[in-house]
């Protein structure tokens, strides 16, 4: 479904990664693990169709957005959701935050109409229910704890039912309870047929949530495969050292 093929990215003279290939299929969770600064966020931005690779191609259902017009690219981009490490909620209520993705997909006439009818759409309630915040629609974003804000951020990306969901270190600042809620929500997204990619440096989390794991070290993926194979019997020596903690960055 969502595929990066032989992509390379460099910032000036610094190569982030080269000739990297990865695919996210519908209804699976793939974890991208690796040390901080290795390019996990950059890879997710490519998959979110938010940035163009220097070399190689990214495609959603075999359609390369960078070979299409801006409006076609926007239509493709709207099939992908992304959750960042920081919740970055808007200065509005929980419901208005979660409704944002639905709102920007409406015509301007409908948007103006929605200013007067402030009912909470079912999709918003359902998305908030997934993260256990269905009763908090009226609360202002400023009043949420960090964990609650990240759960709202997850619901915000889930509400418009994307085909693929990209999560950039979604639980790195969360306590165990909120982490568990997010991990359950990742499972719910998979059950709905959404392809999920999680960038994380938490290998235990990757083991818990992922069907497949891609190990991103230095300037490329050293190993990719089923979670239990990568963690229990890695073929690559650097992968084995990284997982066992012998390879320290």
């Amino acid at each position: 479904m969502l595929r990066a093929a032989d992509v390379s990215v460099a910032y000036g003279d610094e190569t982030i990664f080269r000739d990297l290939s990865v695919e996210v299929d519908a209804g699976e969770v793939i974890a991208v693990i690796g040390p901080s600064g290795v390019g996990k966020t950059t890879l997710l931005r490519l998959l979110a169709l938010a940035a163009e690779p220097d070399e190689g191609s990214v495609a959603l259902d075999d359609v390369d957005p960078w070979a299409r017009s801006a409006s076609e690219r926007l239509a493709l981009r709207r099939r992908v959701g992304m959750v960042f490490q920081e919740a970055s909620l808007f200065d509005a209520s929980v419901a208005r935050n979660v409704e944002y993705g639905l709102r920007v997909r409406r015509s301007w006439t409908d948007r103006l109409g929605s200013l007067f009818g402030r009912g909470v759409p079912d999709a918003v309630r359902e998305a908030l229910d997934v993260v256990g915040l269905a009763d908090e629609t009226r609360r202002h974003a400023d009043s949420l704890s960090g964990g609650e804000a990240q759960r709202v951020s997850f619901a915000r990306a889930l509400a418009y039912e994307p085909d693929a969901l990209l999560l950039d270190e979604p639980t790195s600042d969360l306590d165990p309870r909120n982490t568990a809620v997010i991990e359950e929500a990742i499972g719910e997204a998979r059950d709905r047929g959404i392809g999920v990619a999680v960038a994380t440096h938490d290998m235990h989390q990757a083991e818990r949530v992922a069907d497949r794991v891609a190990v991103l070290l230095d300037d490329g993926i050293t190993e990719m495969g089923p979670t239990e194979v990568v963690f229990e019997d890695p073929a690559n020596e650097r992968t084995r050292k990284f997982i066992s903690g012998e390879l320290v960055y």
């Binding site: 938010a50 960042f84 920007v104 915000r156 418009y160």
Partner: peptide
């Protein structure tokens, strides 16, 4: 970034 990532123009 969130506005753009959520499908905003």
């Amino acid at each position: 970034d969130a506005a753009r990532a959520l499908g905003g123009t």
